[in-house]
Structure formats: C-alpha cells, structure tokens
Design a protein around this nucleic acid. Structure first.
Lengths: 120, 120
DNA sequence: ACAATATATCGCTATATGGCAATATAGCAA
DNA sequence: TTGCTATATTGCCATATAGCGATATATTGT
C-alpha cells in the first residue's frame, strides 16, 4: 500500500517536480493561442469536421490541421474518421471550466477598471 | 439600460471576438511556462521577496525578474516595495483553481493510462 | 486506373521568448 | 560622497512556433 493521501488542511502548495510543472505548462500552452481557443469554442457546440472548423476559424486549412494536432496531443480533443471527413470533438470536460474561470476573471478585472473611470 | 444578461440554458458557446480570444490566450500564456508555475506555486505559501523566489526557483535572478513581470502584467501577482526588497504575492485567487483543475485532469489521465497496462 | 475531395505533412520565413551575462537603478548605511 | 544589497533592464543568442504555399496521403466514386 502506498502511504495514504492526506488532504492538506493548510493552503500549502504541494511539492511539484520539474517534470510535473512541465506537464502542467504544456497543457496551459495548448490553451495559450487564440486560434486554438477559437477551435475549442466552436467545438463546444458539438462535433465538427475539419472543413467546418476551417470555415469557422477563418484561416488556412494547414494551420487549422496543425493546431488540431496540438489539441489532440494535449488530450483536449478526440477525432474519428467517418468516410472522407475527420470529426473532432472535445474530449476533456475540464476545458470548459478553465475557460469559464478565465473569462469570469477577465470580466471582473474589466469591471474593476471601469469603476476607476467613474465620475472623472 | 443594456439588455439583460440571460444565462444560457444550452451549452452553446458565446460568440467570442478575436480581441477577447487574444486576451484569454494571453492569460493562459502566462501560465504556460514551468518556471512561472513554480514561482506561483511558491507564492501559494504566502508573500515572498524576489531573492527568496530566486532561491526557490533555482535559476538566475534576471530570469526570475522577467518572469515576475510577466505574471504582474497578467494581473496574477502584485508587488510592494518595502525598503530594499520587493515583496510578491498572488493577486488572482482563480489561479489556484485553474492549477487544481489542470492537476486533477492530469492525474485522471495518468491513472487512465495506468489502467491500460494492467494485466498485460 | 483515374479523378475529386478531405486532411495531413513539409519547407519556409518571421516573430516571440527563455536563459544568460552585463549593466543600470534604487534604497540604505557608513 | 562611497559602498553595499536587491531588483530591474538591456543586449545577445538559441529555440519554438504561427502562418503560408506546396505537396503528400487517404477515401470515395466513376
């Protein structure tokens, strides 16, 4: 038996190895490009094939294909071939959460800034 | 009065402008480097000055300083000067959430992979 | 086999950025 | 002032990667 996994009472950070940090950074990096976020945002509505994603993205097919492979590599999307087309879908349910948290924070900061300008 | 903010019943994605996508990507980019994650992880334990962060990070001071400015620019940390030292602290409470979600997902995937190797 | 369509991959250039060494700046003390 | 410490900034190099055009591969239909 490995030692029991005690949850931490304090807010202390767990010791993260460099390898773990690299893994985490890698996943954030996959979310760190506007075009990839756009693709994911499109896929939130449901499964789409590559051509549809190219149209929605408004950029070249080669580019979309490359970004899709990054997302796939990061385990964020899954693909299945159906005849001629490749259908893509989100395979990582936490992505929606992550984006919502980010957006909420951005909105809060924006409103905070707006308040600074009230009644000049 | 602006139009009321109806919450969405469906799982439909909101229309995100390119500017918004860029902003979101920018924040994820700040989290997309192992060293920055390490700094944030250290700061989770509380306020630290730059020298302490340099020691904890195990890299050069110039490097740490640059990464800190990225995090500050992204609104994730705040700094205050106290005499000779600059004290840094996390200013964005959502960071912890984001990292925890990422880590949970990584752990889940790791366990999933481990299962694939059971009973070869 | 050939043609047509959908997607992936390759080669390229331009840009962004991490790390380092050196230097600059700021605050404090003697 | 001079010197010391803490931090920021600058210049440089190496690497990563976004975007693009061209090409390769795969799948289906004729």
């Amino acid at each position: 038996m490995p030692p029991k996994n005690h949850p931490r009472r304090d807010g202390a950070a767990k010791p993260l190895t460099d390898a773990m940090l690299e893994l985490i950074a890698q996943r954030f990096r996959a979310l760190a490009e506007p075009l990839r976020l756009k693709l994911l945002n499109t896929l939130m509505q449901g499964e789409r094939n590559v051509t549809q994603l190219v149209e929605a993205a408004g950029t070249g097919q080669a580019n979309v294909s490359k970004h899709l492979s990054v997302l796939k590599q990061a385990g964020m999307i899954a693909t299945r071939r159906e005849g001629l087309v490749t259908l893509c879908s989100i395979s990582d349910p936490s992505i929606k959460q992550l984006c919502e948290i980010m957006c909420a924070r951005l909105k809060a900061e924006h409103e905070q800034r707006a308040k600074q300008f009230e009644g000049l």
